[in-house]
Amino acid sequence: MLQLEGLKVDLGAFVLRADLSVAPGTRAAVVGPSGAGKSTLLSVVAGFLAPAEGRVLWDGRDLSGQEPGKRPLSIVFQDNNLFPHLSVADNVGLGLSPSLRLSKDDRARVAQSLERVGLHGMERRRPAELSGGQLSRVALARVLLRSRPLMLLDEPFAALGPAMRGEMLELVQDVAAETGATVLMVTHDPRDARRLGGQTILVAEGVARPPVATEALFADPPAVLRDYLGPD
């Protein structure tokens, strides 16, 4: 279980507070107006930003001071998820060994995970030779291999078309199901939140609210969410 306990993030001009917990296996969308602090929230959980107050706990264990790479999570950014100078296989292999010392067995697992995300035989390609959707698939193949219990997605498919986004969301759900991971996904689009199913964390007015069931939230949105969604 992920717990944000009395969290306060101070970025000078803007302060974000959060006091919430996310049950294991939850798929939570993180929605809210731009600039409200959705990405900031993920940065704190991932360990890129230190909170001014409060703690981030995983299964009751305090993650404060732990390096991003050591935390029990994988993160997919909006872009720059792959190193352009490394092959697809090496980019995925980094998920098994950060120093890329890969055994024959490891290489086989890399190939397997690539096959799983629909990129069979693309091990030797460079990121520059792939399409936007394929880049996302490589990043998800790595998430699959790392098999960490928490999956953070920071608007990873914002640059893709609607149909492709749908495919990617399905893949995210498959990966999450296979690894049993809890998912936190930042998105701009309420349709993505609904497609993800599960729950939604609303970030607005300097506060990240506890997750509630997505369908219920959109059925009867609070004023701040109504303003954000606009007239239908």
Binding site: P68, G69, F77, F83, L86, D90
Partner: peptide
């Protein structure tokens, strides 16, 4: 551009120098 990704994958020291 790439520091966060390297951090999130735990690439440090020699591995970071060599691969990033």
């Amino acid at each position: 551009v790439h520091g966060r990704l390297a951090d999130s994958l735990g690439m440090r020291g020699w591995a970071r120098l060599k691969h990033l």
